[in-house]
Design a protein around this nucleic acid. Structure first.
Length: 410
RNA sequence: GCACAGGUGGGUGAGUGGUUAAAGCCAACAGACUGUAAAUCUGUCCCUCCUAGCGAGGUACGAAGGUUCGAAUCCUUCCCUGUGCA
């Protein structure tokens, strides 16, 4: 592992001081950045795709395979883990990492997305959100403070401010009110976090002892660019070690998503990690990385896999289609994942059609592998990936392996 | 041979005189999925035609006849299946 000074010696930027996650930007290319986020549970090379493991599990795939796929950071969900198995339960088990046997980094979402996705089951007030549990109908109150308490208890490396994910469409008044609420909640989130951030259920590894949990702020503002700018500026004023763009992928046209992302990125600090929440397709994650997004997460690869939709170097494939019934070729001939190297399309279709659990497993392995490969290619196009420099910090291999970002596989 | 019980669209299975081309489920086929209430959801699913519509014809509830304005539904005969008794 190279040292911080060696990174600087390459003429590239910046170490964010902090008692939280540390973020180095190693190279830039256009707007895209190659960075390294150091957390109490290891480094995260950015731009990064983060698989979603809502209930302490990335559906359809086990942690050992995720490690083999070189997943660096997983998402978990506060709302779902709070309901089941319960934050205290996880804390008693030593925190989320130990509980789910995941040694690498974890980011938890605060439950803000559930304010949107479970809109029929909740009531929002200034103080917080009352959810009616989708599991048993019981009532649960979430506030910025309780969401922080829960996330500290779970012990994720990066935790998210409690926000209101604004629905689409939202008129300007509604979008502003929602944004203002999120800003007030952001300040409350930070205040509580600063007072309690040392109450995590784990001890950081000695080598990373200077790192603690990090709290990221979330920019809202609907699809209104002026509100996005204001939200960004005022969130930055509150001050976080990283910033997320939330409130997208909520049903708006994709062109609009891009417009909002691009406009919002302009107002986010260049030296802090920028996290675009809930995005996207393989094409989109490449596009947004090239715009300067450092972190993304999305349920699409895992959910689509379970529904028979597979992303390949030649585009999307619906493996359930009859045309694959006697297709003896690999799912994606350019993919080296264990699904593609071992099984034929005909077999994958059969597994899907027969409702075999293995279909979900193999499909999930492929889709995640494809996303991670895609992101790796992006990182290569900006600068070398981790593990590719010698002990003395010299780059191994060629520089800028993959050419222009636009030539990346989708 | 006798006695019961049955034969409905690819499968199962509702329907016992009138919006029934025939419920539901399954299968099949197609589509959707973007900080996960998702191993989910939606659509199509007898044939032909078009101005593509809660459109027009045709065919269909074991077979053939019959009753009726009208039959998957009632009657007759026949064929077949299951169970029991001989």
């Amino acid at each position: 592992m190279s040292t911080s000074s060696q990174r600087k010696a390459r003429g590239l930027i910046v170490t964010i001081s902090a008692v939280s996650a540390t973020f180095h930007i190693e190279t830039t290319k256009g707007s895209a950045r190659r960075g390294c986020l150091t957390t109490p549970h290891g480094e995260v090379q950015t731009p990064v795709f983060m698989p979603v493991g809502t209930a302490a599990s990335v559906k359809g795939i086990s942690q050992d395979i995720l490690e083999d796929l070189d997943v660096q950071i997983l998402l978990g969900n506060t709302y779902h883990l709070y309901l089941r198995p319960g934050v205290d339960q996880v804390r008693r088990m030593g925190g989320l990492h130990r509980f789910m046997s995941w040694p690498r980094a974890i980011l938890t979402d605060s439950g803000g997305f559930q304010v949107f996705s479970l809109s029929d089951l909740r009531k929002v007030s200034e103080e917080g959100v009352t959810f009616r549990s989708h599991l048993d109908g019981s009532s649960h109150f979430f506030s910025p403070e309780s969401a922080m308490e829960a996330q500290i208890g779970l012990g994720a490396d990066i935790i998210m401010a409690f926000d209101e994910c604004t629905e689409y469409p939202a008129d300007p008044v509604r979008a502003r009110n929602s944004m203002e609420l999120t800003l007030r909640w952001a300040a409350r989130s930070k205040k509580y976090f600063e007072e309690h951030k040392h109450e995590v259920p784990w001890e950081p590894a000695p080598t990373r002892a200077e790192h603690t949990q990090a709290l990221f702020g979330i920019v809202q503002g609907g699809m209104n660019l002026a509100l996005r700018k204001e939200s960004a500026e005022r969130t930055i004023e509150i001050g976080f070690p990283g910033y997320a763009i939330g409130g997208l992928s909520v049903g708006e046209p994709r062109a609009l998503t891009r417009e909002v992302v691009e406009a919002t990125l302009e107002h986010l600090p260049k030296d802090k990690p920028r996290y675009l929440m809930g995005v996207g397709t393989p094409e989109e994650i490449v596009e947004y990385a090239n715009l300067g997004v450092d972190m993304m997460d999305c349920v699409l690869p895992t959910r689509a896999a379970r529904h028979g939709l597979l992303f390949t170097s030649e585009g999307k494939i619906s493996i359930k289609q009859a045309r694959y019934a006697s297709d003896g070729g690999p799912l994606d001939s350019k993919c080296g994942c264990r699904t593609c190297t071992r099984y034929a399309r005909a077999y994958l279709r059969h597994l899907y059609a027969s409702n075999e659990i293995l279909a979900q497993i193999l499909n999930t392995i492929h889709n995640l592998s494809f996303y991670l490969d895609t992101m790796r290619s992006v990182r290569h196009s900006i600068g070398l990936d981790h593990g590719e420099r010698d002990h003395d910090g010299q780059w191994k291999g060629a520089h800028f392996l993959s050419g222009e970002p636009s030539q990346l596989k989708p």
